[in-house]
């Protein structure tokens, strides 16, 4: 008897899938394994050790870059989430009008414009401001990160709002809630999972950024990724593997949280 046709079982599918998974995960597995290498090499195994984690955690530059990364990510993700929440409310709590699609495109622009272009543009723009104001602090990096994090925060929040019955806010207004009370008591509690998801996504995206940060940062403003990039230029030690492994773990934890939060429906 002939087997029934299934789109999932076609010649080559399994092979292609296997190749893709190996290409994707093998390097990461190798990287993680060598983070525990006793020998100062990323290719020759010299026994199990945690010494690279220990040395990384005592490296003043690593600590400095990590703290800076977290500081920028926390502030930028918060600002981006606030802006994205307002943008999502403005674009969903209104009857469709001509130009709305254009506004979606404007908000999501950082997803489409090549990062290198944004990086160069910000470099030129900020250097002018630096000359005028003399200010060269973290503000530039925070502003840049906020800008490109907005669409990542915006998408889950908007998705949540679009699934929310508009008549709930109407009902609140009907029951004497002012616009602010309706937002506080009805919209915000129902939107909360979306906002949290947006915040976490924005945080991870900010933490991970290299290209724009590389262009915008002033001297002594390395974030963890740009520090790692700089170290690699001087030759790789398993310390980089250890930092990468810690970074990977953190990202996995946050993305997992994001997944559970955004899946929550009540």
């Amino acid at each position: 008897m002939a087997k029934s046709f299934s789109i999932r079982h076609q010649p080559g599918f399994t092979t292609i899938a296997a190749v893709c998974f190996v290409a994707l995960y093998m390097p990461i597995i190798v990287l993680v394994v060598y983070a525990f290498n006793e020998a100062p090499s990323t290719s020759e195994w010299g026994g199990f050790s945690l010494k690279w984690f220990q040395s990384a955690s005592q490296n003043a530059q690593v600590i400095d870059a990590t703290l800076r990364s977290f500081q920028i990510a926390a502030i930028a993700a918060t600002l981006a989430t606030i802006a994205a929440t307002m943008a999502a409310l403005a674009t969903t709590r209104t009857p469709p009008y001509p130009g709305l699609t254009f506004k979606y495109a404007m908000i999501n622009q950082p997803l489409m414009v090549p990062e290198i272009v944004t990086g160069v543009a910000l470099l030129i723009f900020f250097s002018r401001i630096k000359i005028f104001t003399g200010y060269s602090g973290l503000g530039y990096l925070i502003a840049a990160h906020t800008a490109f994090c907005i669409p990542f925060a915006y998408l889950p929040i908007r998705a949540r709002l679009e699934n929310m019955d508009l008549s709930l806010e109407r009902a609140a207004a009907d029951l004497y809630a002012t616009p602010w009370q309706a937002f506080r008591r009805v919209t915000l509690p129902l939107l909360w999972p979306g906002i949290l998801a947006g915040l976490m996504l924005a945080f991870v995206i900010s933490l991970d950024d290299v290209v724009i940060t590389e262009f915008v940062k002033s001297g002594g403003q390395d974030t963890l990724p740009t520090y790692m990039l700089g170290q690699i230029r001087r030759g790789i030690t398993p310390e980089i593997n250890a930092i990468s492994t810690a970074f990977l773990l953190l990202s996995v934890v946050i993305v997992t949280l994001f997944f559970f939060v955004s899946r929550k429906r009540d």
């Binding site: 709930l168 109407r170 009902a171 009907d174 009805v186």
Partner: peptide, 20 residues
């Protein structure tokens, strides 16, 4: 007048009960 200033209340077709 905005809806929250009218002493008039509505029963919605979808009920619009607050799920939280």
């Amino acid at each position: 007048l905005p809806p929250f200033k009218r002493p008039v209340n509505t029963v919605f077709q979808s009920y619009a009960l607050f799920p939280h």
